[in-house]
Every structure is written in structure tokens, then in C-alpha cells.
């Protein structure tokens, strides 16, 4: 094999792997990404039932209903609209009423959101940023709930 042929073998191999990867990425991005929506989006954008989405907002005060079984029902609100959510399983530690939460799952035709994953915060001072942004949009953002530190000495 000449130097030129060798080089073309390597270039061909590299391009082949690269195009395989591009192909895989395009397909995966088309099918697997999940969009984030607020209750307002769900009402306004007519999200199709059965499509996998992330729904974010606050857990509505007084909405959490634990039945006798494993299923928990509550509502996610952006303070103007609320969507009922149903979830079976163990809720995250920091899940509670009035706190930010992101639920992943699907809407059914009756408008109830069946979640298979519930994400809450990792610590007390933290609000999922999508939720914070959504609340800012609604004009009900209370600012950082984090206690401000005592004035630093300069």
C-alpha cells in the first residue's frame, strides 16, 4: 500500500465513525429529549396527551392527598393554573407543599399528569432553576429564599 492509500483508509475510517455518530445523535435527539413546561404552557400550547414532558412549578398548598395505597396525588401550580399529578412510589426527601418540584411523565386525556419521576431539591436553599424562571415569568417570584449572610466586613 502506498502512503496515499493508507491515508485514505484512515480518513475513510474516521469519516465512517463520525457519520455513524452524527446519525446516532440526530436520531437520539429527535426521539429522546424531553421538554420542560409550566402549567400555563400546558393550558396554552395544547400539549398532546401521551407525550413525555417535564412539568414544573410549586406543589399547591393543601393539594397533597395520600391514599391508603402507594399512590400520591397532588397538584403542580404556577400560582394561576394547577395541573393534577398522580405518582406511585417514594417521594424525594424535600418534597412538600409550597416547594418547587419537577415531575416527569405524561398527560392523559382527562388532563391528569401521571409522573414516573419526581425531582425536588438537593438542599434547603435551592429551587430548580426552570421553576424559578417560570415563577419569575408569572411575576410571583419571592426572590432567593436563602438567608442573606450578615454583612461582610470589608
Amino acid at each position: 500500500m502506498t502512503r496515499k492509500q493508507r491515508r485514505s483508509v484512515f480518513i475513510f475510517g474516521g469519516v465512517a465513525v463520525l457519520s455513524l455518530a452524527v446519525f446516532l445523535v440526530m436520531f437520539a435527539l429527535k426521539d429522546t429529549i424531553v421538554f420542560f413546561h409550566t402549567p400555563r404552557d400546558v393550558a396554552e400550547k395544547h400539549i398532546a396527551p401521551g407525550k413525555r414532558i417535564r412539568l414544573g412549578g410549586l406543589v399547591e398548598q393543601g393539594s397533597v392527598k395520600r391514599g391508603s395505597g402507594l399512590t400520591v396525588e397532588f397538584a403542580i401550580t404556577d400560582t394561576t393554573r394547577a395541573i393534577p399529578v398522580r405518582y406511585t412510589g417514594v417521594l424525594p426527601d424535600l418534597f412538600r407543599e409550597g416547594q418547587g418540584v419537577v415531575a416527569e411523565g405524561r398527560l392523559d386525556t382527562a388532563g391528569v399528569f401521571t409522573a414516573d419521576t419526581i425531582l425536588a431539591k438537593h438542599d434547603e436553599n435551592y429551587m430548580p432553576p426552570e421553576v424559578a424562571a417560570a415563577l419569575k415569568k408569572e411575576g410571583v417570584w419571592q426572590g432567593d429564599s436563602k438567608a442573606k449572610s450578615p454583612a461582610a466586613k470589608k
Binding site: 455513524l20 437520539a28 435527539l29 429522546t32 429529549i33 424531553v34 421538554f35 420542560f36 417535564r54 416527569e104
Partner: peptide
């Protein structure tokens, strides 16, 4: 300004085959 999440299905479909 679109908010999306790319989760395990994406990585399993791209990283895995490679």
C-alpha cells in the same frame, strides 16, 4: 430559551453503540 432535558435514553442510544 427552550427548556429541555436530555436524559439516559439519548446517551444509551449514542454512547452505547460506539
Amino acid at each position: 430559551g427552550a427548556k429541555i432535558s436530555v436524559g439516559p435514553p439519548y446517551f444509551n442510544a449514542t454512547f452505547g453503540p460506539l
